[in-house]
Design a protein around this nucleic acid. Structure first.
Length: 983
DNA sequence: ATCCTCCCCTAC
DNA sequence: TAAGGTAGGGGAGGAT
């Protein structure tokens, strides 16, 4: 992701164009020398700095599409030096073969797709210029995360471990061929989804706008105009410009000998001919060949049709050149697709619009070697219609006076927005031309087509269009859909497919920085009675159905998407064997920085920002913050909602969660809306999780922290024994207990939620027992069929310390009791038994790094002796035990045996009591100092034992309470702090 | 009246 | 064999 940001940033640089070939050359050179060792590229490699190396190799990892460009450079070079046909250098052998076959004028297309484009010996007319498909100046940025798709490719390439294979061109090609041969359906290719999108023309078309959006959104004029209608009344000049048969023109742009021959673009030239023609040039169209036609039908009409494969890289490159030119002439450019745009010239026109258009078209042809047609008129509708009439390679200006004439004979179907359904419906009423449509009243149209469509019909047939040229439009939905090659035998096939589709959608969302609240699953099933589709692996005649769910909070989370996709699929109750297509779409989108905040520490802001008017009102009335008797309740409810907003289907009950979150979602909280610090409910404040406190602290410009410290100080005076501390203000704290919890996706939040509520309860000394807490967690976990043990961390090193810190002491103690405590946290901080022995024996006094307070100086033996001779029975017994035990035991081991000695504890208030207490206190203090830098876990063991004993002995309760503050914030390197920094 | 879901239609 | 996607918009009908 960072790399993609880097590349997309660089792309705007002027340098880029001139450097790219060099970069590619380097890449290619490196590849060749690494693999073949036959070409001396030392010089080139030396020139390449280390940074460039990394960049280049990462670049090549980033996308499968790079496999093709990798070879392009060499192709280009060869083309320059040898013949005009260029040779695809898949590997050395192929290159040689190609060279020889090229001499015979035989196509090289088949080299890539094998028999697909094999040339019939008797049909030389069908030769294909494979080199053309490869021949372009590679634009790395086009492939590197310019689109969400590229991002997805990136992650997948990394994930599937094909990272290193870019070194081998030969093996890459084999890979491609292999994957190509088995990627016909979801049943045979585990990576079907990814492979599919890589090859889909419609996917390319469909995602192009996104790519453009990212690339040109920063240009002047990119800001969208307000409102969709133009009320200014000023007469505009709109140009619609459209490249001619783009997919064909680009592929054959360096093949002038093909320009006057029928050519079509298609995936396969296989004799079976059920591949679909995507685009045909004008000579081909003269034979009646159209987009969407099967190759065999096209061949039937035109046996000498040349079929060329797609070259998506080239399309991207030419589209960039195209838009680069458009932006030179006009700042208001609305991209309709890779080859078609509207220009609002009203503001930037200084010359005759027709002359400007002519210049523009000439420049486009000069640069791209592809022709473009254009229409000029006073609105978008007429400009678009004009282009249609001007094609190919022409332009037409429709002046206001000519509009009526032009429209009267225009077929209805030609109007944009009128498809087969509407035009057929009109046709059945004997309305075929715009002139006839004008005779139909608005009311009659309204009855048949509804309000909006009838209005559009009524306006369009009169040449009226008030819509404006909008440079960048807001994305309203993000989705992925596959309706080809989808075949399932078992439920798990469908499940696997849903997982991959979810992955795709999640990555696309992330690529756009968006999150969605509504998830819609669309499923196509074979219509009853429909046989196998004519089209190979097509979906055929299908029924389509969809189910959607709307969550309270937006997400781009993969786990969530998968879970909901599965639920929606199950809700459709389809026979998986009948499924022919699946689509997953996210809508009700929000910008991720708003929603993601909830995950990354902006929960409060995110939640407040997503408030409805009602919630906002509540906040402004300060019920969120103020301490009336309902205040705490309201806060609990809001915290609950906070959790539920990300827990989607867990269905946490809450009044607020039912509030419709439709308007004003992006409203931010301003300082002016914040209540003064003095009005905050301390009880509520104290019980908020650290991440919320941290965020509030930001909102209060850091004043909250100080405020809390003051309060904490005051409370400390009131009661030293109060074990709970105020939440640490920690910007980076993440509210997750352990990594495993992540697996349960949004349930994690629910667990948090419960946890927070527990804290709240505990603060009132109405302590919920550890058992209660665990059983609550258990309830939630059980719903996912996970045992309690599964969700326990193995050691405290896996726990989020900020969470740990907030747990009530008894819950904490219980947690510690079930942890496998003897496991080291970290090899670097864990001391060996040897170290411990040494420390215990000499009391650590000889360690210069541990300037300990030695009330009881000397070796551990001396220390034990002091206990032995004390007047405390308990201490005597402890000393006795120590003497009997193996001398290498750490203090925690010694303390463990104290459990059986508890009856020896002195009576509170007695002299023996205070003596015992002070000696133990000093001992522990010293021990803490000794161990704090080397073995925190040992200290914790001791602390837990104290805690455990404190329930049975007042002595140990007192001891525990006096030691705890030392542990918590006694000095900067206290166990808490250290632990925090380590975890 | 307004919103939501589940479609369908359309352009590229 | 072949890669029938994507996204916006709107209507019907039901819920509120």
């Amino acid at each position: 992701m960072k790399l993609s940001a880097f590349f997309s940033g660089k792309q705007n640089g002027i340098q880029y164009q001139s450097n790219q070939n060099d970069d590619n050359k380097d890449l290619e050179f490196q590849t060749s020398s690494a693999q073949e060792g036959s070409r001396d590229q030392t010089e080139s490699c030396e020139q390449q700095g280390p940074l460039l190396n990394v960049e280049v190799s990462e670049d090549s990892l980033s996308s499968d599409e790079h496999r093709v460009p990798l070879m392009n450079v060499e192709v280009a070079e060869d083309s320059l030096s040898s013949d005009e046909h260029g040779v695809p250098l898949m590997n050395v052998e192929v290159a040689e073969d190609s060279l020889s076959s090229d001499e015979h004028g035989v196509s090289t297309f088949e080299e890539r797709d094998g028999e697909d484009f094999a040339v019939d010996e008797d049909d030389n007319a069908c030769k294909i210029a494979f080199s053309e498909s490869m021949d372009n100046d590679m634009d790395p940025e086009l492939h590197v995360a310019q689109s969400p798709d590229a991002t997805s490719r990136f992650s997948d390439v990394c994930g599937t471990g094909s990272v290193g294979s870019h070194l081998s061109i030969g093996s890459l090609e084999k890979d491609t061929a292999k994957s190509s041969s088995r990627s016909h359906s979801t049943l045979t290719d585990p990576n079907f989804v990814e492979n599919y999108f890589k090859h889909s023309r419609l996917h390319f078309i469909g995602t192009w706008r996104n790519r453009y959006r990212k690339r040109f959104s920063n240009l002047p004029g990119a800001k969208s105009s307000k409102g969709n209608n133009d009320h200014s009344g000023k007469k505009k000049t709109i140009i619609h410009i459209d490249m001619d048969c783009f997919f064909v023109s680009v592929v054959i742009r360096n093949r002038p000998e093909l320009h006057d021959k029928p050519v079509a673009v298609c995936h396969s030239d296989n004799p079976k001919g059920t591949a679909e023609i995507s685009s045909a040039n004008y000579p081909a169209r003269n034979y009646g060949i159209k987009a969407g036609m099967f190759v065999r039908d096209a061949k039937a009409r035109c046996p000498h049709l040349t079929v060329v494969p797609y070259n998506f890289d080239a399309y991207g490159e030419v589209a960039d050149q195209f838009y680069g030119i458009l932006h030179k002439y006009c700042t208001k450019v609305q991209a309709l697709s890779c080859d078609e745009a509207f220009l609002d010239m009203t503001e930037c026109l200084h010359d005759n619009p027709e002359e400007v258009t002519e210049r523009m078209r000439n420049e486009i042809f000069g640069t791209t070697k592809c022709t473009a047609s254009a229409g000029i008129a006073e609105n978008r509708l007429l400009a678009r219609l004009a282009t249609r009439s001007a094609k190919p390679n022409g332009q037409l200006f429709i002046s206001s006076e000519k509009v009526d004439d032009y429209l009267s004979t225009l077929p209805i179907k030609a109007l944009p927005g009128i498809g087969y359904t509407v035009s057929d419906k009109l046709k059945s009423n004997e309305v075929e031309h715009c002139g006839q449509l004008r005779n139909i009243s608005k009311d009659a149209l309204h009855k048949d087509f509804g309000k909006k469509i009838s209005n559009m019909l009524w306006n369009y047939c009169r040449g009226i269009d008030h819509s404006v040229v909008e440079a960048v439009q807001e994305t309203k939905s993000v989705g992925a859909e596959v309706n080809w090659g989808v075949r399932f035998n078992e439920n798990k096939d469908a499940d696997n497919f849903l997982v991959n589709l979810s992955k795709e959608v999640s990555l696309r969302l992330q690529g756009c920085g968006l999150q969605g609240r509504t998830i819609t699953l669309k499923v196509k099933t074979r219509r009853k009675g429909a046989g196998e589709p004519l089209k190979f692996m097509g979906c055929g005649d299908c029924e389509t159905m969809s189910r959607s769910t709307t969550m309270t909070g937006a997400t781009d989370n993969l786990v969530t998407l998968q879970r909901i996709a599965r639920q929606l699929f199950a809700a459709l109750h389809v026979d998986v064997k009948e499924v022919r297509g699946v689509g997953l779409k996210m809508s009700k989108l929000e910008h991720a920085d708003l929603g993601r905040g909830a995950q990354q520490g902006n929960m409060l802001k995110s939640w407040l920002g997503s408030s409805s008017e009602k919630l906002k009102k509540q906040c402004s009335e300060r019920t969120c913050f103020l301490g009336n008797s309902d205040g705490a309740g309201a806060t609990t409810s809001e915290v609950r909602n906070l959790g539920s907003s990300r827990s989607s289907l867990t269905g946490v009950a809450s009044d607020l969660s039912k509030v419709k979150l439709t308007s004003g979602r992006s409203t931010r909280v301003h300082a002016a809306e914040l209540p003064p610090l003095s009005e905050l409910d301390l009880e509520v404040l104290k019980n908020l999780p650290p991440e919320i406190i941290s965020e509030m602290n930001d909102m209060y410009k850091g004043e909250l922290h100080g405020f809390l410290c003051t309060i904490k100080g005051d409370e400390g005076k009131e009661s030293n024994s109060k074990s709970r501390v105020l939440p640490a203000v920690n910007q980076n704290s993440v509210p997750v207990c352990n990594a495993r919890l992540h697996q349960y996706g949004e349930r994690t939040d629910s667990i948090h939620l419960e946890k927070r509520n527990n804290i709240k309860g505990a603060s009132d000394q109405e302590v919920q027992t550890a058992h209660a807490s665990c059983s609550r967690a258990n309830e939630l976990i059980d719903t996912e069929s996970v045992t309690r043990l599964d969700f326990m961390p193995n050691s405290l090193s896996q726990a989020d310390f900020t969470v740990l810190q907030e747990l009530p002491e008894d819950v904490k103690a219980d947690l510690f009791n079930v942890l496998p405590l003897h496991r080291p946290i970290d090899p670097t901080c864990r001391t060996s038994n040897v170290t411990e022995n040494k420390s215990l024996k000499n009391g650590g006094t000889d360690d210069p790094k541990n300037p300990v307070i030695c009330v009881l100086p000397g070796s551990s033996q001396k220390w034990a002796e002091q206990l032995r001779v004390s007047s405390s029975l308990l201490l005597n017994a402890i000393a006795e035990q120590h003497a009997n035990s193996i001398s290498s035991q750490p203090l925690s081991s010694i303390l463990e045996h104290v459990a059986s000695l508890l009856p020896l504890c002195p009576t509170p208030g007695s002299e023996e009591w205070s003596d015992t207490l002070s000696r133990l206190s000093v001992l522990l203090t010293e021990y803490i100092h000794l161990k704090v830098d080397s073995d925190i876990e040992e200290l914790y063991k001791c602390f837990l034992l104290l805690k455990r004993f404190s329930s049975a002995s007042e002595l140990f309760l007192e001891l525990h309470n006096s030691i705890l503050p030392l542990l918590q914030y006694g000095w900067p390197s206290s166990p808490y702090h250290l632990w925090l920094s380590q975890t």
